[in-house]
Design a protein around this nucleic acid. Structure first.
Length: 244
DNA sequence: ATTATTTGACCAACA
DNA sequence: TTGTTGGTCAAATAA
């Protein structure tokens, strides 16, 4: 099951990304709180670009990667290179969904139909969540292109229902790594945040990762505080993504 | 039977 | 103090 998300990988979204780019993407950071339920990871919920003491968080604007490529790193307990790596992959992930949503209707619709039938076999689930803010559209795409295995544990509408945020956790037992994928109503991934870092190396079986995307072994080292991606240059794990 | 996903509900932090 | 927003949990469902 968790492998089928690769389906998204076959799209080249290039034009899509620009459609809805919140001008405030930079400021659009989460300033909320970190529930204790998660323990340490919760603290990292600050995806803000502001350097705090929280775990490193990498946020990539999908529209950006293609055009602007904004990646924000927030200092935290986790971080380092692994995340940078992820951000690279992220870029790929980010780009794909666009096309599916915009162009590939057959597949997208098909998937949506299936999903919808799950909860509301009878109704098309057109009705938006009233207050909860749960995303109206659910897509089976899992941004696991970074080489890690993620499991989606939540989804919500944020920013006035303007964006849908999906919450992913690393499937590893002791791994606190989390990922937040923000998508516009159009289905375009507009932002991806990496919270905390993986306590384990990437699974070997990640064919999705291109050799170019693979980061040097040092990048994969969990304990490399030297990376401190706070500097403007460091923010971009891959300068390709961060043109800013 | 197992695993992953979806989504409503609850809780916490901030304005 | 209240309202809003965000994050996570847990139950239900599907593959």
């Amino acid at each position: 099951m968790g492998v089928s998300k690769d389906d998204v990988s076959q799209s080249n979204q290039e034009d899509s990304s620009l459609s809805n780019v919140p001008e405030k993407d930079t400021e659009y950071v989460h300033q909320k709180k970190g529930p204790e339920s998660e323990g340490g990871a919760s603290e990292s919920s600050r995806v803000s670009v502001l350097p705090k003491k929280e775990p490193y968080i990498i946020s990539c604007k999908s529209d950006s990667p293609v055009k602007d490529g904004n990646i924000s790193l927030v200092p935290g307990k986790a971080s380092d290179s692994s995340q940078q790596i992820q951000s690279q992959k992220m870029e790929e992930v980010v780009s794909q969904p666009h096309q599916e949503q915009v162009t590939s209707s057959p597949m997208a619709e098909n998937a949506l139909c299936k999903l919808r039938s799950r909860r509301n076999p009878d109704m098309s689930v057109q009705d938006l969540p009233s207050d909860k803010g749960v995303t109206p559209f659910s897509e089976p795409e899992k941004p696991s292109k970074d080489g890690y295995n993620w499991r989606k544990y939540g989804q919500k509408l944020v920013r006035g229902n303007e964006f849908t945020r999906s919450y992913y956790k690393c499937t590893r037992i002791n791994c606190l790594a989390k990922k937040q994928v923000e998508r516009s109503q159009d289905g375009h991934i507009t932002n991806i945040h990496y919270i905390a870092k993986h306590e384990h190396p990437k699974p070997l079986n990640s064919p999705q990762i291109s050799p170019e995307l693979v980061v040097p072994s040092e990048m994969t080292q969990p304990d490399m505080p030297t990376e401190t991606p706070r500097e403007g240059t460091q923010d971009c794990p891959s300068q390709l993504l961060c043109s800013v």
